[in-house]
Design a protein around this nucleic acid. Structure first.
Length: 938
RNA sequence: GCGAGGGUGGCUGAGCCAGGCCAAAGGCGGCGGGCUUAAGACCCGCUCCCGAAGGGGUCCCUGGGUUCGAAUCCCAGCCCUCGCACCA
């Protein structure tokens, strides 16, 4: 594999250096953060589920936070960058079954393995803050918090429809029901639905705030906020009652009360109480309801007439009542008045069932949409009117707002006015409906947090007293159903209230409860008398940078927001809002996924503070397999992090991942890219090593050193900006360019030792957040004080006029190339370069300030007139220029080109002469203009 | 259907928010050269068209518009990706 060639001695061995530095960091407590730290940068990655192995998604996620955390540390920030384990959950039970062990042992083994892998990746965590959710010291606080929620009426218990596997005797999550046939994932038996009493958190109490606060969260990607908005699904509408003779009033919910005059039938969902009742009396209805229950999906227009009629409160008319599957039980009230003229589904149903279609809304330009707060652009045609004549509701529903017609005395009202008006007219009630349901936290599983309640025949459900917490899990029992249910000894307990025979609640909590506040536990992981130190949490929160997968866009991120708001309302997080108002708003992220508008009118509640756990959120993109598809076992395109660590080392893996794409974008694994990352690291090491051994001779400082110095400063400035903006790939590119420049420098001449070392040191620090091990090794080699992990981030700004000078040099080089190419010059021996004389700069200056008569203004200048014809010609040229970019002074141009002479010499292998402003031969100087020197090639 | 994000040179992908050396970064692929016995790796150039001195032409999904000036801003359309959805 390795032949001992010359460069071999300048290679590093990742297998040797990585563990070495990992140990060194650990021994020096580099990543410890003191409790006394004040408002540290809180950088957090979503903690992993303890599946047993890190995958590339984890590696990417954790490389991002680690690099950023190290960067902030180097800049002198206190950094909180903790790690923990999302370690409860059903897979552990299954694994335990398969392997004949128990979930605890299995999980603990997984944690050991995964922690080891994290360490091997070189991730710097404060392991003293490690949090493990399946540890009783953690989940006791789930129980404690559950009780506080209970105290504050945020817990309810009620019947819910759930998936039930009769064979396994347990509830299943939706994800655990396979395919269209709805089979149990474990035993392949058909799943039933059952109504069970379940514990729930009333997250719906916070629906409005959860929704409205999203507008101000400009550190979050738009798509996540939108997904949460969709999920919460607020609908503002109206309820009203329709009387069905003999059966009383039926409540409906509608967002289009304005169309009520057009209601030509009434529809109930098959699950609606009245539908069920009618099924008992009418065979057709019974048959249809049964069919709807049995079959997954009925045709959209299916339905059955019940023989009953409902009274339209607007018209007093009787309209037929149907049971129809397209009416959903859990939307609104499960009953609606149908307006075929103005709703697509109602329309289709009416056509199918031969029900009249009555138009009651006509299009009207000024009634479309809501208030038009944007004055129409001058000259633009009026808001596209739709000709009422062109609307034919017999063929298609007209679903836009408009003006009422055929609505009795209300004709002419706009839809919006009508909705307001009709609420009173027809005894309706404004109501806001949500798609969001209360959060069902009950799970009939073993491996979770026991819900701390005791069911007493006399007292009902009684909470376990705080002093008896935690309710610990009993020994795992292999059984088909819920092992807690089978744990007889554990289950039977005295009622805390009356002392009588009670039975423990055998449901455990959904594991999303664990992850809804773990970021608070990191603040004070060992605290014994509270879930977290409120004061410190108030100072340290919110999390400044939260990074994780998009799959948690709704569930976890919504629950965590909910918890944070509740904890604040329980006065456990006093300072969070106060702190949050000023700090933490995200300036960065020009990645386009963030909000472009901040809500103007903030609600009153928000003025109290943001009450949000995560200021900036980044969803890292997926790491795809080499074939461009999602990595999966079945495709066999997975790449194992451990294998990569072994073969190339953690630094290479980290570098490759970070340079492959910006964090939020997906990218495909690419073994050539990995190879290239590795080679780059080796070449950085080689350069340092050669320099260290004196293989690179050193000479005097001169213009080349000046050039290199400026590039070093520029690189430092660029890299700093790019890190701040989470564009690590751009940062790496800049470092690569600098390394390449250093190579060229050493190749061209004996470099100035000081400059060269400064360059190497800068590279080491700039790269350290991403490839920390090699950088430590190089720093060691160069004899730096202490570790890079604790070094100081270099400070530098780009030199004055740096960008303009770079462009000048680059353009000049390109021009030389062009000329040689186009003129077909075989072997240039001499290149003469002359910057423009000062008077041209002056002319340009004057021209840029002139309005109108450029030539006149320029020639009006006494000094310029002395240049006669030449000045006039140039003035004409300038007159045609519309935009004057910034340019360097003649001297600065001369200096910039002189500094870059070596690059030209090196490239063209010719003598290079750069004339000072007034020294050039006239012919050459006359060609030159500011920013564009005259060039002569022989 | 509603909403969000996109469409850039052979591919990938920056730039777009804050319009101006933008024929448009970087990478890949391709071409030429260096190094090498050779291959690989590495290094240096080229890679829209025309051009015998740095010039000209065309170009950033399509079509309009704003502007002295548009890949960038505005309008309309087409297409893609994602989220939600028999949602009253």
């Amino acid at each position: 594999m390795s032949s001992p060639d010359a460069t071999e001695q300048h290679r590093f061995d990742h297998a040797a250096i990585e563990p070495k530095w990992q140990r060194a960091w650990d021994e020096a407590d580099v990543f410890r953060i003191e409790d006394s730290a004040e408002d540290p940068e809180y950088i957090l990655a979503m903690f992993p589920y303890t599946s047993g192995n890190l995958h590339m998604g984890h590696v990417r996620n954790y490389t991002i936070t680690d690099a950023y955390a190290r960067f902030e540390m180097l800049r002198g920030e206190d950094v909180l960058h903790p790690m923990g384990w999302d370690s409860f959950g059903l897979p552990a039970e299954n694994a335990a079954e398969e392997r004949d062990t128990n979930p605890r042992e299995w999980t603990m083994d997984c944690i050991e393995t995964m922690r080891d892998q994290l360490v091997r990746m070189g991730f710097g965590y404060d392991w003293e803050r490690e949090v493990t959710t399946c540890d009783p010291d953690y989940y006791r606080w789930n129980q404690w918090l559950f009780k506080r929620f209970l105290d504050h009426d945020l817990v309810t218990r009620g019947a819910r429809e759930v998936n039930w596997c009769p064979d396994c005797e347990t509830v299943l999550a939706d994800e655990q029901v396979k395919g269209e046939d709805e089979l149990c994932w474990r035993c392949d038996n058909p799943v039933e639905t059952r109504e069970l009493d379940q514990w729930m958190f009333t997250i719906t109490d916070y629906a409005d705030e959860l929704l409205e606060a999203l507008d101000g969260m400009d550190g979050w990607p738009n798509n996540v906020r939108e997904m949460q908005r969709n999920w919460i699904g607020r609908q503002e509408g109206t309820t009203a009652e329709f009387a069905v003779e003999g059966y009383g009033d039926v409540e409906i919910f509608t967002t289009r009360l304005d169309t009520i005059y057009g209601a030509t039938f009434f529809a109930l969902s098959p699950g609606h109480d009245l539908a069920q009742q009618l099924a008992g009396e009418n065979e057709d209805v019974a048959e249809y309801v049964a069919r709807a229950e049995r079959e997954e999906e009925l045709p959209e227009t299916s339905g059955v007439f019940t023989g009953e009629y409902a009274v339209n409160p607007a018209t007093g008319e009787e309209i037929p009542v149907y049971v129809a599957d397209y009416v959903l039980e859990d939307v609104g009230t499960g009953a609606l008045f149908a307006v075929p003229a103005h709703d697509d589904r109602d329309h289709a149903f009416a056509v199918e069932h031969d029900i009249p279609i009555r138009q009651v809304i006509e299009p009207a330009a000024d009634a479309v949409g809501t208030s038009s707060d944007e004055p129409s652009v001058a000259g633009a045609p009026e808001e596209a009117d739709i000709d009422p004549e062109e609307i034919d509701v017999r063929t298609e529903a007209y679903t836009e707002d408009g003006v009422l017609v055929d609505s009795g005395e209300f004709d002419g009202l706009t839809s919006e006015e009508a909705r307001e008006r009709f609420v009173e007219e027809f005894d309706g009630e404004f109501r806001t409906e949500y798609r969001l349901r209360d959060w069902l936290i009950s799970r009939q599983r073993y491996w979770g947090t026991p819900i701390p309640m005791v069911d007493c025949p006399d007292c009902g459900f009684v909470p376990v007293p705080d002093e008896d917490l935690p309710v610990e899990l009993p020994e795992f029992i292999h059984t088909t159903g819920n092992p807690l249910d089978a744990a007889e000894e554990w289950k039977h307990v005295a009622c805390p209230e009356c002392g009588g025979d009670g039975v423990r609640e055998t449901d455990t909590m959904n594991t999303f409860v664990d992850s809804s506040w773990y970021f608070l536990r990191y603040v004070s992981p060992d605290l014994a008398d509270a879930p977290f130190d409120g004061e410190r949490a108030s100072d340290w929160m919110p999390v400044d940078e939260y990074v994780g997968g998009i799959e948690h866009a709704v569930m976890h991120l919504l629950y965590a927001r909910f918890f944070t708001k509740v904890l604040d309302d329980l006065d456990m997080l006093d300072g969070v809002h106060a702190n949050d108002v000023s700090g933490g708003s995200s300036e960065r992220r020009s990645d386009g996924v963030h909000a472009n508008e901040v809500s103007g009118g903030s609600s009153e509640r928000r003025s109290d503070g943001v009450r949000e756990p995560f200021t900036n959120l980044t969803n890292q993109g997926m790491v795809l397999g080499e074939d461009g598809h999602k990595m999966s076992k079945s495709r066999g395109n997975g790449v194992s992090p451990v294998r990569i660590i072994e073969e190339y080392g953690a630094d290479t893996a980290r570098l490759f991942i970070m340079e492959a794409a910006q964090p939020h974008k997906e990218f495909a694994w690419d073994s050539e890219g990995v190879e290239s990352a590795n080679q780059f690291l080796q070449s950085v090491y080689r350069l340092a090593s050669e320099f260290d051994r004196g293989d690179i001779g050193t000479g005097d400082a001169g213009t080349i050193a000046e050039y290199v110095d400026r590039e070093i400063d520029a690189t430092v400035a660029t890299v700093t900006e790019e890190y701040e903006a989470f564009r690590f790939n751009h940062a790496i590119q800049a470092v690569r360019d600098l390394v390449s420049l250093l190579y060229q420098y050493a190749e061209y001449t004996d470099p100035d030792g000081e400059t060269f070392e400064r360059g190497l040191t800068a590279v080491t620090k700039l790269l350290a957040p991403i490839a920390p091990h090699v950088c430590e090794e190089i720093r060691d080699l160069l004899g730096g004080d202490g570790m890079v992990a604790r070094a100081e981030w270099p400070e530098a700004t780009k030199a004055d006029g740096y960008e303009i000078a770079s462009r000048l040099v680059e353009n000049t080089r390109e021009d030389v190339r062009d000329i040689i190419d186009v003129a077909g010059i075989e072997d240039p021996s001499r290149v003469e370069i002359a910057v423009a004389p000062a008077w041209k700069h002056r002319a340009r200056e004057i021209a840029s300030g002139a309005d109108g008569d450029v030539v006149g203004t320029v020639m009006g200048d006494e000094q310029l007139r002395q240049h006669g014809e030449d000045a006039a010609d140039y003035a004409k040229e300038l007159a045609g220029t519309e935009h004057f970019g910034e340019q360097l002074s003649p001297d600065a141009e001369h200096e910039a080109l002189t500094r870059a002479t070596w690059l030209l010499e090196r490239e063209f292998d010719a003598e290079i002469v750069v004339y000072a402003p007034e020294e050039a031969p006239d012919a050459l100087a006359s060609e030159a203009t500011p920013g564009r020197p005259g060039i002569n090639i022989e």
